[in-house]
Design a binder for these strands. Structure first.
Lengths: 250, 250
DNA sequence: CGTTGAATTGACACCGTTCAACGACAGTGG
DNA sequence: CCACTGTCGTTGAACGGTGTCAATTCAACG
C-alpha cells in the first residue's frame, strides 16, 4: 500500500478505512528524476503530491538568486498538501533523489474532506507537523552554532526515518551534499565543511558522501540539544519529562 | 463582530454566512493581562483561541533556559488553531499586551468542520499561513544580518497590520522591547540595540520605545528584501512580477 | 584519462557575543 | 517635591564564529 508510511508512529494515525479512502484518492503514481523541481511557487495548483519513495525538499529563492532549503521530506510525507488549502505555494518543491510520487487531485480531496471530517482533521494535522518542524528550525538556527545545527539536522532526520521504518542502527544515509546541508543550516558550504570536520574530530558523527556514521546516538542528540517532542511521535509531548515548571512569560 | 478581521484581505476569505457560523462557535471572550502565558506546550487542549485585540506570540524554551519568540500574532489571527488538529502544542502561547481573546471549543469546531467543509478548508488555510510565515523567517534568519532581519520584522508586521486595518501611515507601533526583537531575530539585545542604531543612522527606521517611525517605506522593504507574497494578500503570489524564470533545481 | 562535481584548506575581514558598566526614564512612596 | 527602584536602552573592548576569495585535492564517471 502506497500510503502505508503516512502518519506512521505519530500521535495521530489513520485507521484502515481511512487509509483505504486516502489510497483511493490517488489518481496516479509518477517517478521523477533527481534534482528536479516539481512544483513552482506562484503557480495555481489542482493536485497535491505524496512522497512514496525517495527524498524531496522545499526551497525558496532568496534575493541573491540562490536557493535556501527550508524543509526536507522523507517517504510518508504528504509533501505539498499545503497546496490544497493555499491553492498556490510560497515555495518550490523539488526532488533530491529519484522519487516515486503519488498524485492526489484536489477534487478528490474535496470529496474526502466533505465525507470524512475526522480524516480531514488528520490531513490537517500532517501539514501542521511541518509548521512545528519549521518552528524548531527557527529556534535552532537562532540558538546553535553551525556544527550543532547540522547535528540537529542529522538527529531530526534520523528520528523521522525511524518513524517511517527506514532508520538504521549506525547512522543514516541522506541524498544531501555539503552544499545542501549548508543551505539548510544557513551557512556556507565552506564553513559547513569545517563544521562537519569538527563533528568528525570530536567523534560525534562522520559524514562521508551522504552517509552519516554515528557511534553514540545520545551524544549526537545531546550535542544538538535535540528533543523529539516536536515531531509528535507516539508518547506525549514531554509532559512529565521536564525538570521544572515553565517560568512566567517574562 | 469579533471575527471581522479574520482572513481579511487574504487570497482566501470568509463569506458572511461562514463568518456568522464561526462567530457562533465562540463560547466566550476573555481579557488577559500583558505578558501572560495562556497555553503551555505539552498540555492537552480542548479549546482554541482567536485574538480579537492586542498582541500575542508563540515562544519555545531553548536548552539554555530562555525563550525564543518564533512568531508574533496580531488581531484577526486565530492564534492557536494549530491546537485543534495537533491536540497538544509544541510551543507556548503568550500575550505581549493586554489582549481580548475569543475562546472556541474544539467540540464546536468539530461541528463546523463536519457541516462546512469549505469553511474547514479556510480555517486550515489560516494555519498554513503561519507555516508560510515560518518558512520566510527561516529564510531571512539565514540570509540577513541583524539590522536587515529586524527591518524585515518591521516590514512584515506593518504589512500584516495593514491587512487587518490597523496600519498607520508613518510607521507602526509594537508592544515589543529590544529584548523581544532580539529574541525574534536570534541575536542578543545588545547587538539588537546596535542594529537599531544602524537603522536610525541610515535613516531607514527609528525605533523608540515600541514605536517605529519610517519615512520611506519602500526603502525599509528594499533594505530587508521584503516581498509580501508569502502573506497571501489579495493579488496573486508574484506570478508575472518576477524578472526571470526560476532556474532548475540545482 | 580527462572532466566534472564535491570536498578540503588557508588567510583575512567582519558580524555578533560576551562581560561590564553606565544612562534615561517612569513609577512609587516618603 | 525628591529619592529610590526597576526596566529599558546605550556604549566600549576583547574574543570567537562565520563569510569570503582563492586554490587545491579527491572521487566518480563517461
Amino acid at each position: 500500500m502506497r500510503t502505508e508510511r503516512f502518519l506512521r508512529c505519530r500521535t495521530t494515525t489513520l485507521d484502515d478505512r481511512e487509509r483505504q479512502r486516502l489510497e483511493a484518492a490517488i489518481s496516479e503514481v509518477r517517478t521523477i528524476g533527481k534534482r528536479r523541481t516539481v512544483i513552482r511557487h506562484g503557480a495555481p495548483l489542482d493536485i497535491s503530491l505524496y512522497l512514496v519513495r525517495g527524498y524531496m525538499c522545499r526551497t525558496i529563492d532568496n534575493n541573491q538568486g540562490d536557493r535556501q532549503l527550508v524543509s526536507i521530506q522523507v517517504p510518508g510525507d504528504f509533501v505539498d498538501l499545503h497546496g490544497y488549502p493555499l491553492r498556490v505555494l510560497d515555495h518550490d518543491v523539488s526532488t533530491l533523489t529519484e522519487a516515486e510520487i503519488a498524485v492526489v487531485p484536489h477534487a478528490n480531496l474535496d470529496t474526502l474532506v466533505a465525507e470524512e471530517p475526522a480524516l480531514a482533521r488528520k490531513l490537517w494535522f500532517s501539514t501542521l507537523l511541518d509548521a512545528a518542524i519549521h518552528r524548531q528550525w527557527i529556534l535552532k538556527m537562532e540558538e546553535l552554532t553551525a556544527a550543532r545545527r547540522v547535528a540537529h539536522v542529522f538527529a531530526e532526520l534520523w528520528h523521522r526515518l525511524d518513524m517511517v521504518g527506514l532508520g538504521r542502527r549506525d547512522g543514516l544515509r541522506t541524498p544531501l551534499i555539503q552544499a545542501d546541508l549548508a543551505d539548510m543550516c544557513g551557512t556556507t558550504s565552506i564553513h559547513m565543511n569545517r563544521a562537519l570536520g569538527q563533528l568528525r574530530k570530536e567523534g560525534i558523527a562522520e559524514f562521508r558522501r551522504g552517509a552519516v556514521y554515528v557511534r553514540d546516538r545520545s551524544r549526537l542528540e545531546a550535542f544538538a540539544g535535540f528533543n523529539p517532542d516536536y515531531l509528535y511521535g507516539r508518547g506525549d509531548l514531554g509532559v512529565g519529562t521536564e525538570l521544572a515548571a515553565p517560568a512566567p512569560a517574562r
